[in-house]
C-alpha cells in the first residue's frame, strides 16, 4: 500500500517483468542519448549557439551598411538586399518587423547574423503549404546570433515572430527570397 509506512526490508532488487522493463527503458534512454551527438556529427541541422555581444546601436549600424552595399530593390517600403554568396547577411528583429528583406541563393552557405533592437523576438521561417519547412531560433537584444545557414529550396519564405514582443507582435513578418 502506498499510503502506509513500510517496514524495513523493502530495499530489494526488482525481478520478473519489472526488471525486464527497466532494462528496456534504460536501453531506450541510451538510444536517445546517442542520437544527438550522432546528428551533431552526421546531420545537417544543429543549433551551435554561436553568438557575440553587440550593442543594439552597433548592430543597427552594421545592418545599415549591409543594406547600402547590397540593396537591389524595395518592396512594401522595405529594402531587398542581396547577400554576397558565401558571405555575411544581416537581419534585425524589431517591433514589429524583420528588416531588411533578404535575397539568397539556393545551395550557398551564408553567415546570417540576427539580433534584436528592443525586445526578445522569435525568428520563425515558414515554407509554403506542403513544403514541411519551419525553422525557429531565438533572437535576443545584445546578442549577435550567427546562423550558418544553407537554403536547400528556392522560392519566397516568410519569417514570422513567435516570441511575444508586445502589442503588434501578431503582425511582425519578414521575407527571405531564395533564387535557384
Amino acid at each position: 500500500m502506498s499510503i502506509f509506512a513500510v517496514p524495513a526490508g523493502w530495499l530489494k532488487a526488482p525481478h520478473g517483468a519489472e526488471r525486464t522493463w527497466l532494462a528496456i527503458a534504460l536501453l531506450w534512454c541510451l538510444v536517445l542519448s546517442v542520437m544527438m551527438p550522432y546528428w551533431h556529427l552526421k546531420g545537417k541541422q544543429t543549433s551551435s549557439g554561436e553568438a557575440y555581444d553587440v550593442e543594439p546601436g552597433e548592430f543597427n549600424a552594421r545592418v545599415e551598411k549591409f543594406v547600402r552595399d547590397g540593396k537591389v530593390d524595395v518592396r512594401n517600403g522595405i529594402p531587398v538586399v542581396e547577400a554576397p554568396p558565401g558571405g555575411h547577411a544581416y537581419l534585425i528583429g524589431r517591433s514589429w518587423t524583420w528588416y531588411p528583406i533578404l535575397k539568397l541563393k539556393k545551395g550557398v552557405e551564408y553567415k546570417l547574423h540576427v539580433s534584436s533592437l528592443d525586445f526578445q523576438h522569435g525568428f520563425s521561417l515558414q515554407g509554403k503549404a506542403g513544403q514541411g519547412l519551419n525553422m525557429n531560433f531565438s533572437v535576443l537584444p545584445g546578442y549577435d546570433h550567427v546562423l550558418t545557414i544553407t537554403p536547400t529550396s528556392a522560392g519566397e519564405f516568410n519569417i514570422i515572430c513567435n516570441e511575444f514582443c508586445g502589442m503588434g507582435h501578431e503582425k511582425m513578418t519578414g521575407l527571405i527570397v531564395v533564387e535557384e
Binding site: 518592396r75 512594401n76 517600403g77 522595405i78 518587423t97 528583406i101 522569435g122 520563425s124 515558414q126 515554407g127 503549404a129 519547412l133 519551419n134 516568410n158 514570422i160 515572430c161 513567435n162 511575444f164 507582435h169 501578431e170 503582425k171 511582425m172 513578418t173 519578414g174 521575407l175
Partner: peptide, 17 residues
C-alpha cells in the same frame, strides 16, 4: 505546419508583408 504559440490568428491581416 509552423503555427506559432501565443498568437491570436494565423492570417496576419495587418502585416506589412
Amino acid at each position: 505546419l509552423g503555427v506559432p504559440r501565443r498568437h491570436p490568428d494565423i492570417d496576419f491581416t495587418d502585416a506589412a508583408i
